[in-house]
């Protein structure tokens, strides 16, 4: 399927209040392209959780969104500490976030599970001390649109 648009964002690690700007911008673009509201919502939530993770754990990173007619591919790259145990990190409620993050309403161990829940496909490549790349695909036509 032909690619409609590619978006690139820098997520700043020192700016917790700015987290979400990339997701909101992507959401606006998807709306202009005429995507279904449920598809947009899933992509926006998955992307925002990824942004928050990059701010909390990796001092920021880069986000790339490749938009095609039938899918939205989100690639989140950081040069943070990496994830020691991906299987554990994927469990609902597991978190290594500090108390100051929890006070903001995050760090409840729902970020990665939410990203998996709202995307149709999710893959994590991580290396300790090098960083993490998360690949997510949100399909236009998916049973998850009913979520």
């Amino acid at each position: 399927m032909s690619e409609l648009l590619t978006l690139k964002y820098t997520v700043h690690g020192d700016n917790f209040t700015g987290a979400g700007e990339a997701s909101v911008s992507m959401k606006r673009e998807l709306r202009q392209l005429g995507f279904d509201a449920n598809v947009i919502r899933r992509a926006a939530i998955a992307m925002y959780e990824g942004e928050i993770n990059m701010v909390i754990h990796a001092e920021g990173g880069e986000a790339e969104v490749i938009i095609s007619e039938d899918r939205i591919e989100i690639i989140l790259r950081d040069e943070g500490p990496g994830i020691a145990n991906v299987e554990l990190a994927m469990k609902d409620g597991f978190s290594t976030a500090q108390d100051n993050i929890r006070a903001l309403g995050f760090g409840a161990g729902m970020g990665l599970p939410n990203m998996k829940r709202y995307s149709d496909d999710m893959r994590i490549e991580t290396e300790i001390g090098k960083g993490t790349t998360v690949y997510m695909t949100i399909l236009s036509d998916s049973p998850k649109n009913a979520l």
């Binding site: 917790f16 209040t17 987290a19 979400g20 997701s23 909101v24 959401k27 919502r41 926006a44 939530i45 925002y48 903001l104 309403g105 995050f106």
Partner: peptide, 13 residues
């Protein structure tokens, strides 16, 4: 909750 992230969540959801 009343920090700026509440607005981001409200927008995205």
């Amino acid at each position: 909750m009343s920090n700026v992230n509440v607005v981001a969540v409200a927008t995205l959801a």
